[in-house]
């Protein structure tokens, strides 16, 4: 039992170190890009996603971070964005839905390719499923419903 707890402790510490190694550079880079007004120009080409799902433009950044770096990191940026008061409850739900189907596309896909899977099928299937699912659900949640801006902290 002691050995198991030791493994869990070491494993937990390693995963926190792993998080720090990824989240710190992301957060610092994003902040610099934001303060120097470069971030908007990077996310702008992807604003069609926000139009497609009828979400606010602020939802594009957490979506991109989640797609590239993964669900946990995306969630971190979602919470930061929500705390700044730029996301509605509807935005939050739709981003999460998209990321559930499609996140960490590089890491996950490469890992499964390494195991012998077909990377193109996996990548395309996840992207298409996320787009279709989020689009379909976005048509079913009314825009007026839950329109208030809610800091994610309140629900935590």
């Amino acid at each position: 039992m002691m050995a198991i707890l030791k493994e869990a402790t070491i494993g937990s510490i390693n995963s926190i170190i792993g998080i720090i190694k990824i989240i710190m550079p992301i957060m610092i880079t994003l902040q610099i890009l934001k303060d120097y007004k470069i971030l908007d120009r990077i996310t702008k080409p992807f604003n069609f996603l926000a139009r497609m799902f009828k979400t606010s433009d602020s939802s594009v950044l957490p979506l991109l971070v989640g797609i590239i770096f993964g669900l946990s990191y995306g969630a971190g940026v979602i919470i930061q964005t929500a705390n700044e008061g730029n996301l509605t409850k509807r935005d939050l739900f739709l981003i999460t839905l998209f990321l559930l189907a499609c996140h960490a596309v590089f890491e996950d896909t490469l890992l499964l390719v390494a195991a012998g899977g077909n990377g193109i099928i996996i990548f395309v299937a996840r992207l298409v499923a996320a787009l279709l699912l989020t689009y379909a659900v976005s048509r079913h949640i009314s825009l007026n419903e839950n329109e208030e801006l809610i800091p994610a902290r309140e629900q935590a």
Binding site: I23, M27, I32, A156
Partner: peptide, 12 residues
């Protein structure tokens, strides 16, 4: 950015 990173790390 550093502060936001720490907050997010703590939360996760």
């Amino acid at each position: 950015g550093f502060k936001k990173g720490l907050e997010t790390t703590w939360l996760l």
